[in-house]
Design a protein around this nucleic acid. Sequence first.
DNA 1: CCTATGATGATCT
DNA 2: GATCATCATAGGT
Length: 213
Amino acid sequence: MIEGLDRTPLTRDFFDRPVLEVAPDLLGRTLVRITGDGPIELRLTEVEAYAGEIDPGSHAFRGRTARNSVMFGPPGHAYVYFTYGMWHCLNLVCGPEGMASGVLLRAGEVQVGAELSRKRRISARSDRELAKGPARLATALDIDRGLNGTDAIAHPGAPLSVLHGTPPPLDQVRNGPRTGVGGDGAAHPWRFWIDGDPTVSLYRPHAPRRRAT
DNA sequence: CCTATGATGATCT
DNA sequence: GATCATCATAGGT
């Protein structure tokens, strides 16, 4: 186990705040995933905020649909979506309920269960790449749509939960434009990361894909 | 180090 | 039919 870590679970109140408060506050926290093979734990190093129906970059911008309905529900639950035909991404819903905001978990450092994670991340050249990117993070933690809507506040049998961990000093938290978000949503500097951490993903500006001819 | 491109399918218009 | 909160790989510098 990790020494010197505050392993107190985060509470519902932690997530029941505006997403721009919650997102940077998640850095350094410990994400716990209980798989069939054992636990995997991750220290969060990079996140992005999505502010519901006022945010052109958010899945909830055009209102509630079958896919995004979890975002409109209670804070502290997992919103998992499938994208680009083969990847999953994990978000944590923030408050207040009905605002449809969430935090995309983009990267982290695997601190427990790296051997389990490696089995799902064969192409990772080093452990620092296990969860370096949102779809890599979901793969490393064996997360798919089966976990969509799951309550991520710690409780008996919880497959997913978040512990207090060790937040970084405030002057080590950086922010900038969100990765892969174009149009009007690109203006918001709502990506947050821990400065200098080797597990933070590389920034890629949004580029529209060329149409097939 | 870098840039370009194909993979693959759910979702929404 | 177009888009997509992405990644792995190939090949150039």
